[in-house]
Design a binder for these strands. Structure first.
Lengths: 216, 216
DNA sequence: CACTGGTGTTAGTGAGCGTTAACGTGTCGC
DNA sequence: GCGACACGTTAACGCTCACTAACACCAGTG
């Protein structure tokens, strides 16, 4: 069990600070000297631990994509044993919220700096991302069999956008009171979005039909 | 519709291409030579039209924030005359969806490259953004008076994240069939999220008191 | 104590890039 | 025809920045 507290001090420390800086100012907006300064060493000392700046970003993105996928698989296996898609989806949502709140910088990087990777790394990250998305899509389709796959996939992406909005609420302008409240809010909104996805076609009491493509 | 948009040919052409490139590869990831090449001129020729690369980004971000706010105000005035907050919110959602689908690159830039602006421009953009958010928050609070302001604001940000997810659906992996379907899907998801916001208190599978103490 | 490997430092190099300089060319008012 | 101007070109400058080179310190190990 090599969980936390082990702290291979420097490497992880560097990755953590690099993630924060990349998320704040963008990959190109951060210099190696700044990353080094953030961990107490200066500039080129980083090259004792990483092959280069690109390698840091690659490891961050591959790492986060992998952990996200692993966590998702675990939750599907765990909650899916009961055969209740709703419970699985709820578990996936909770897991993603935890992730988004625990590692905001990484979540931000996840869909912002992907293009800076070498082809091989980018392909790997995309593959992990796609698997994670498919995990969700499968569950959503089990829960709402009437929803076509393209809509389910679109809804999943959209809910990701919703959940990943955490970086925009956090520090500035005094957002939500506490973490628990943010969790609760995001959970409710995500469930509401998926619920609306299920109400295909008619139903919606509040707005005009407008469901089919025939809106002029 | 390309009505009279072709008037100041070069300037707008440059802005359009710059927006696309910035959104694709990031502000620092695009060189002035590329922007020039995209409009048929080369490199420093851009400086006949703009003071610099920063000026292009500034004009783009200020422009989009302003148009977003103006459109929102118009819709609040228009649909708000009937005194029906639900209709106003629906109109705001439709407007934001149109915007997100019409100008994906700009929507992407809107909350990605803001930090690259000079202080004055950034302050202006943030002010416009805040006004736009407050427009939504006001309507949401009229519609759901029981929801505390912090939650309403958080929900609005989250729904922005949802609606702004359009860049992730578009080109790759063959997303939604057509634009109308995407519009419809996003509209339904957004309404669903807000509806869930209204159902405060019990309802949810996991109960959290939510606000209670943290007001203000 | 000498040896070695891990970790850090400062100085320097080479490339990329935003920006400016100097110059060319078509169009328009007179 | 002829300045004036808008618009574009290529060449070059200067700065930033990732990365490398050469050197220093410190912990074990024999």
């Amino acid at each position: 069990m090599s969980t936390r507290t082990a702290a291979p001090t420097r490497r992880e420390q560097i990755l953590s600070e690099a993630a924060r800086l990349f998320a704040e100012r963008g990959f190109h907006g951060v210099g190696v000297d700044e990353i080094g300064a953030a961990v107490g060493i200066s500039g080129p000392g980083l090259y004792r631990h990483f092959a280069g700046k690109d390698a840091m970003l690659a490891e961050l993105l591959v790492g986060i994509s992998g952990r996200l996928l692993d966590g998702g698989k675990l939750r599907v296996r765990g909650a899916g044993a009961a055969g209740d898609p709703a419970a699985v989806l709820a578990s996936l949502i909770d897991g993603h919220i935890d992730f988004a709140l625990d590692d905001r910088p990484l979540i931000t990087l996840h869909d912002r700096e992907l293009d800076r990777l070498r082809d091989s790394d980018r392909k790997l990250v995309r593959q992990l991302q796609r698997q994670y998305v498919e995990l969700w899509v499968t569950v959503v389709r089990e829960l709402y069999p009437a929803v076509p796959e393209s809509q389910a996939r679109g809804a999943v992406h959209a809910v990701f956008g919703l959940l990943n909005s955490t970086p925009h609420l956090g520090s500035p302008s005094g957002g939500l009171p506490g973490r628990a409240a943010t969790e609760s809010l995001l959970r409710r909104l995500a469930h509401g979005a998926f619920a609306a996805l299920g109400e295909t076609g008619e139903a919606g009491g509040t707005d005009e039909p407008g469901d089919a493509a025939g809106r002029g």
